[in-house]
Simulated scan of single mutants.
Amino acid sequence: MPDGNDAQEQQLERRYKIRQVTDYQASWTERGRGEPGKFTIQLILDKGVDEYIIEANSDDVDVILKLLKRADHAMFDMERKVLMFENLDIGD
């Protein structure tokens, strides 16, 4: 029988499927000659245990890449599709 801490941990794990972003790759794909392309950011989660592809416009890609660079760590909630950043270096 699990103790109180184990039960709480299991309940939180069921509620949130959060993985650490351990690497990422940005890409741009041509859709057709003279047409706007498509930007994606591939998030590598927990050293390859999982991955997620974000499709974003050019403004969002720029911001996301800057946040990934400035954060000590980034986490991704698989269920809620939320990218979270820890300890951002917001200096120059």
Rank of each mutant, 00 (worst) to 15 (best):
7 A>H: 01
9 E>G: 01
9 E>Y: 07
9 E>P: 00
12 L>Q: 10
13 E>L: 10
13 E>C: 06
14 R>A: 10
15 R>F: 04
15 R>P: 04
15 R>M: 11
16 Y>W: 09
16 Y>V: 05
16 Y>I: 01
17 K>L: 08
19 R>E: 08
19 R>M: 12
20 Q>F: 03
20 Q>N: 08
21 V>T: 06
21 V>Y: 02
22 T>P: 03
23 D>G: 13
23 D>Y: 06
26 A>Y: 03
26 A>T: 10
27 S>Q: 11
28 W>D: 00
28 W>Y: 11
29 T>C: 02
29 T>S: 09
30 E>L: 09
31 R>Q: 12
31 R>K: 10
32 G>Q: 11
32 G>C: 05
33 R>W: 04
33 R>T: 12
34 G>Q: 07
35 E>K: 13
35 E>Y: 09
36 P>R: 01
36 P>W: 00
37 G>K: 04
37 G>F: 02
39 F>C: 07
40 T>C: 04
40 T>K: 04
41 I>L: 09
41 I>C: 00
41 I>V: 13
43 L>Q: 01
44 I>C: 01
44 I>E: 08
45 L>G: 05
45 L>Y: 02
45 L>V: 06
46 D>Y: 05
46 D>G: 04
48 G>F: 05
48 G>A: 05
50 D>Y: 07
51 E>R: 10
53 I>E: 13
53 I>G: 00
54 I>W: 07
54 I>Y: 09
55 E>D: 08
56 A>N: 09
56 A>D: 09
56 A>Y: 03
57 N>C: 11
57 N>Y: 07
57 N>H: 12
59 D>R: 14
59 D>G: 09
59 D>P: 00
59 D>T: 14
59 D>A: 13
60 D>E: 15
60 D>W: 04
60 D>H: 10
62 D>R: 15
62 D>Q: 15
64 I>P: 00
65 L>A: 07
65 L>V: 13
65 L>R: 09
66 K>N: 14
66 K>V: 15
67 L>H: 12
68 L>E: 13
69 K>Q: 14
69 K>E: 12
69 K>I: 05
70 R>D: 06
71 A>R: 09
73 H>R: 15
